[in-house]
Design a binder for these strands. Structure first.
Lengths: 295, 295
DNA sequence: ATTTTAATGATTTATTTGTTGCAAACATCT
DNA sequence: AGATGTTTGCAACAAATAAATCATTAAAAT
């Protein structure tokens, strides 16, 4: 963000030499420099998830006399930003007049940003809430998304897996994806994600599920999507870009919001489930705890 | 400076009704709003040349519960200025006076929208462009994303597959994911996506690839991500939400932008590749052409 | 001129802050 | 294994903080 902030650079440079807790503290400071300037040390520590003492230790590790100096530097940086405001705008204009790639990228990102903002409209929120409610009451949640929608389906399933064991992902090698539905009942719900062009297999599987009495909810792209007719709840999200492809970013955002709503519904249970997942994964040594040597 | 700061306007409006000391305090606050946010009340009082108690009285005079609220408001204003681009979007956040789920959803979506807007800043655009350039010149592009990042990796790979045959997805059943690298050379590039907590396997595979001379580019979440050190190009994207989970929406957006930039680079070839894909898929009868019967 | 009212200054009080010392837990290396 | 050095969490501390209280002063009204 500020390439010319010496303290920042020092933290990045010395990051590898820090202990785990120090790294966690440093990471938060790097990512939330304003907070360091604006709130108390204990509060920063709380937000960073470390002991208050660790913040002091971080300051000393960086060669500063104490935490106050750390805050002072961040405060100074924040003060300067008021002045440097004009410079930033100028920089943007310079570049904005420009050529090619950055322009395309910026335009596309702004479009996506606007699409997400649009999802905040009352209609969309109602759909989200309705769908979350329906999913909440399900015994099992089957998740189906083929081809381009695989990414969204899988991610939803992945998060739901961390949360409990109600989720079944309808996908598998050798075309066995549909087998998950063998014992599906009317107590279950199928979340199907599909956008134009709609994959035939997805529609057929959804129809099959519906015939078995499974409740259908869907994330799709249009009022006239084939999914709308067979779904008890539908969330519509935009997919258009000015590029060649349809975007799945709004759909992924929607699925993440659904996960959050479901998680938020029963916080204690969610926390317990997440802790279980943590333990399991740490036993499996899945994640890199210490940062490996840099090259 | 801030025409839409209600507290500011209130102070100006009520200025005449204040006592001499209160006016002096208010004047300083109006002229040095950053200081109010950044230093203690007593210090502000000293700088303003009034008694500490006067600052408390000023806050109460303005109808606030106490000085803390005065500082909180100035801090919030300062925070927003930092976000710059996203500020516009952020303004609406507090409007939701609401209850429950819709509120959570709306808040989260607005946050995501702001994060995408932030990616339009010059720094991020530079990273995007640099990475796209690096990917463009690669003979083959290997794509690696494990666990939560699988969704992004797979989607990138999927789109790249429609575009040509340069993409290899490093994933597979039975832990065979790394096998794709067997014939990787220094002409190739590995795109690795990983966010905290970083999957050990992903880091190890990336390191292996690097040792083979493969160029590394990455999408990750922090300056101090272990990927930064081993990558020729890195795109940083935010992952924080106020929910339990990290979001992958910005990462997906970034990957879609990368795809677009690559596609845009050679439009004729892209169009041809897409037409081929269309033909292939229509021969396979993959997509539902007619909208099936509604129920 | 005297009372009343508001404003300002000084003092006190209960919190909160940043720091430090110490013991348990941890990893590391013979 | 056992010993050693580091890292980490906890609790106690002194300093500083914001607010509440009381005393004094200045101005306004009678």
């Amino acid at each position: 963000m500020q390439p010319s902030d010496p303290l920042r650079e020092q933290m990045i440079a010395q990051y590898d030499a820090m202990s785990a807790q120090l790294q966690q503290a440093a990471r938060y400071v790097l990512e939330h420099p304003e907070e360091v300037a604006l709130v108390s040390m204990r509060e920063v520590a709380r937000l960073a998830g470390v002991q208050p003492a660790t913040m002091t230790r971080l300051a000393k590790f960086l060669g500063l006399p104490g935490y106050d100096e750390l805050r002072a530097q961040h405060a100074a940086a924040l003060r300067q930003r008021g002045d440097g405001f004009a410079a930033k705008v100028r920089q943007r204009v310079d570049e904005g007049s420009g050529r090619g790639a950055s322009d395309t990228a910026s335009h596309m990102l702004q479009g996506l940003s606007a699409q997400l903002a649009k999802l905040c409209e009352p209609d969309a929120l109602r759909q989200l809430e309705g769908t979350a409610t329906r999913l909440r009451s399900a015994r099992k949640v089957y998740v189906l998304g083929l081809r381009s929608c695989h990414a969204v389906a899988w991610h939803f399933h992945y998060v739901m897996t961390l949360l409990g064991e109600r989720s079944v992902h309808l996908d598998g090698p050798g075309g066995t994806g549909g087998d998950g539905l063998i014992r599906a009942t009317s107590e279950d719900v199928l979340l199907v994600i599909s956008i134009k062009p709609y994959a035939k297999d997805a529609l057929e599987l959804a129809q099959l599920a519906k015939d078995k009495g499974v409740g259908i909810v869907s994330i799709t792209d249009s009022e006239v999507s084939p999914l709308v007719g067979m779904s008890a709840q539908t969330i519509l999200c935009p997919t258009e870009t000015d590029s060649f492809f349809h975007t799945l970013t709004p759909a992924l955002a929607v699925s993440e919001v659904l996960c959050s709503l479901l998680a938020e519904f029963d916080r204690p249970q969610t926390l317990e489930a997440l802790q279980q997942a943590d333990e399991h994964l740490s036993h499996l040594n899945t994640y890199s705890t210490a940062i490996p040597r840099r090259q």
